[in-house]
Design a protein around this nucleic acid. Sequence first.
DNA 1: CTCCTTACGCACTTCAAGGTTCGTAACCGA
DNA 2: TCGGTTACGAACCTTGAAGTGCGTAAGGAG
Lengths: 125, 125
Amino acid sequence: MRTPDISIEECTYSHVLEIVSNKWTALVIYSLENGTVRYGEMMGRIKGISQKMLTQTLRQLERDGLVGRKVTPVVPPIVEYTLTPLGETLIPCMRMLNVWATDHFPHVKKAREEYDIGETSGTIA
Amino acid sequence: MRTPDISIEECTYSHVLEIVSNKWTALVIYSLENGTVRYGEMMGRIKGISQKMLTQTLRQLERDGLVGRKVTPVVPPIVEYTLTPLGETLIPCMRMLNVWATDHFPHVKKAREEYDIGETSGTIA
DNA sequence: CTCCTTACGCACTTCAAGGTTCGTAACCGA
DNA sequence: TCGGTTACGAACCTTGAAGTGCGTAAGGAG
């Protein structure tokens, strides 16, 4: 009764996750942090991403207004991507998560290992 | 050549997402923000969650060392969950994302609508 | 005339997250 | 004896995210 019910729809936090929780989104934003990058160059920078996933991720970010897309209709084509001002506002948030991870992720890893040990051996005795 | 390649493994940011990007994780953490909560009470607070998903989410958070679990073996059983100190360190991060969402999500929504209009009608002409 | 390039789109497949339902221990009150 | 309670576990199904591979335009180099 004290605290009201929580739902996903009214939780703004969940909305942010919708935007940035995709597998490659963070890496794409990172690669744009220092300015405009061409499609092909991004492919080279982000290890392991496929053409399809890069395109798909960029389309989504473009749709959300976080990155801008500039096409130069020459042959072969030149397509350049840049963070929009809106997109740049995400950087501090991501940095904060980054700091948290650097500070606390080892702790999490340790907790996991201990938990898993307790799971496998502890239940027997 | 200027910036080195980025990969998911070395991106700490991606590790945090592993932890908190699950659908219900944020809501569960929120519900624990003001202190210890029993299992059944959480069910009532988090709208739409099923028993399975609540248990599953709590197990994961417990494994990651973010929430503590205390069982009182009476009948019917009493199980209480609490944020650990480590779990509490996540709150500021989540708040920041929350602020970002409140400030910028309307902008994102607008961008989406405009993009979708351009998609459906613009290509024809 | 043919191949090479860039930046895609499209079709197909795989896999894991999430959701639904049912069963369970153990005691207490009626 | 029997239903009610709490906090689960296990089996099953669905859906969507992610991965793989192929096709393509348009012109310039050879």
